[in-house]
Design a protein around this nucleic acid. Structure first.
Lengths: 198, 198, 198, 198
DNA sequence: GATGAATGAGCTTTCATTCAT
DNA sequence: AATGAATGAAAGCTCATTCAT
């Protein structure tokens, strides 16, 4: 049987670590835990990543890339902004449901342990793939007259805070219904908040 | 001079610990650090709290109580909901500016280190003071016809996610302007999202 | 029975560590080894010293102080330089015999692992107590006409290299006779090397 | 092009390792570092040397051989002992200047990490090439009446300790002047120490 | 109530050496 | 002869908690 390539091994580590980090948090996840889950020795882990922190940073870049791509697809579609907002909510909730570790990592590791990302991920440099697409989303919406012209962060905070908050409540099993059942009303709320009024 | 009472001592510990936890995070704050800041021995600390976790749990209840009181004041006012929402945003941003440790603790400790609050703070039991007032806020708004009737969590997530997100961006110094300059547009966004339309 | 004071505990650690370091070397001596020898836990060690390196640096200062005091006594004596040189050799060899860990530490740890002493012990700052007395020794000898006027390091290297070399050979059990049996001839060699000739 | 022979490969390893060991010390030099510098895999290294320690031992024998040869040339010359001593000092200081890794290895690795050389290099068996020539040097000097008859180690310690000490001070950049500027006065000191007096 | 020295399990990381290829 | 991923024991150090005083 073929030995897994260097790249496959890295990917495998990232996958397993992502699950642990997102579930247990950065500090409560230990190196032996990660190594065991990947099925390798602790020592060997360090042939692939220089440190626990390096791994954490690669992970957030990886996630940002995937979310960014999803946003780009939406940005490139021809729909009106009511539908586009609905598409974003749908995409985000599907992520949070099917690959919850991504969203949870974002919330529980990246946003929560800032000190880990201090060197090399200052400001938003490690999530720029994603944030850039969000920026394009708003600018385009304002340009074509469907969204009210307002400070970017005011809109960004609404989107990300709202969706993140719902994903959090879902992850904590606080929501009484399935996440996707909130989709339509949340998309409407966001649209009402951001749309232009005649 | 009177010796500080047991209760005063506890309050003093909580105040100092809150500052440390909110700034450094739960795991990066050590017991000796807390003891030193309070001006007491580590050993004596354990006469007031059974563990670091116990302290963390008491803190979130304490904060929930204070935020709950602020919400109650707003709930008891006679204003219309456009103004009430504005009042909530104002209150929250003032908290985040004048007593940032409270909001930061909520975001950086309570929301981020779920494992710490697993036993004894399941679901929302340790933040019920606050959440209950938010519930009253919405129910009353719906009852009097000013807010659209929708699932509580759908509205709750908007409020808390949005405001929390802005406080986070502010704390991370990512916002280009002062937090309070976003107040009006954010209040408007929230109102537009939740109001009834004729 | 009285509990040992903080200072006594530090001294005890230094004594035991000195023995280990001088016998095994800096890197081959482990923290658990030191702790065990002192009869304390590893963790408790760090209540007394910030790190293994800190301990190493305090040790060389301590040794330099003791050797410096011995040299000062000789410097303050009224003898001629032939006798003074003899006194230095005697003192050094007695040290190397009765408290070999001091001389061995100097040779095997301080001189050999320069990287450990890089920060805080640059050049000779941690052995200045001793080196200063050696300087005084030579300067005074030259001033009163008994020693030839030459570059300090040329004389210093002779003294320290020679005596250190003999202590090393003794420690390695390479010398066929007891160290002190070499005393007179070595003192004579040094005197002949440094004295003035009419 | 011819593949490098087994012997050439060994020599290449020794050369590169010597540089690393002498600069970084035995423990701070890692096997991957050596392998990389040689341009071979770590695994292949072990086809040439059984262990890091084996390599270290072969190195000291190699150095002893080279220094021994230099001493033999001096031993075979016809000069008087004042000049011969001068020649030894000159040779040693040139070594220390032009091939510092040899002298530094001797001082920083061989003399400092005795535990590494415990098995197989007891006493002076791995430096016998060199020590033997030094012995011949003294015995011949005594035989022809130019050097005082004294215990070998008393003379040996003077020579090696003095020269080694100066090389050390030079390596540590403690000497205010270039090493060779000390040559004449040091040669004179040694000669005065060892010569016969009428 | 008050102290802080003491504990010891646990952390991340390192590294000489091995071995399937 | 050559590779380098893999091993795993051991390193230095941290820290919540305890307990004799």
């Amino acid at each position: 049987m073929a030995r897994p390539s260097n790249k496959e091994r890295k990917t495998s580590i990232m996958k397993q670590a992502l699950e642990l980090f997102s579930k247990e948090g950065f500090y409560s996840t230990t190196m032996p835990q990660i190594a065991k889950k990947v099925g390798m020795s602790v020592g060997n882990f360090y042939n692939y990543f220089n440190s626990k922190e390096t791994l954490a940073k690669e992970l957030i870049r990886y996630i940002s890339g995937i979310l960014g791509e999803e946003m780009r697809t939406i940005n490139e579609s021809k729909a009106n902004y009511k539908d586009k907002i609905h598409a974003v909510v749908t995409m985000y909730f599907e992520m949070a449901t099917k690959r919850p570790e991504m969203i949870q990592y974002f919330l529980r590791v990246y946003l929560s342990n800032r000190e880990v990302f201090e060197d090399g991920c200052e400001g938003m440099v490690c999530v720029s793939d994603f944030v850039t697409e969000i920026m394009i989303f708003f600018e385009e919406g304002v340009r074509c007259g469907e969204l009210r012209d307002q400070d970017f962060y005011s809109a960004f905070g609404l989107f990300m805070g709202y969706l993140g908050g719902m994903a959090f409540l879902n992850g904590e099993k606080i929501l009484p219904h399935a996440l996707k059942s909130y989709r339509d009303s949340i998309a409407m709320n966001i649209y009402n908040a951001l749309r232009t009024y005649p």
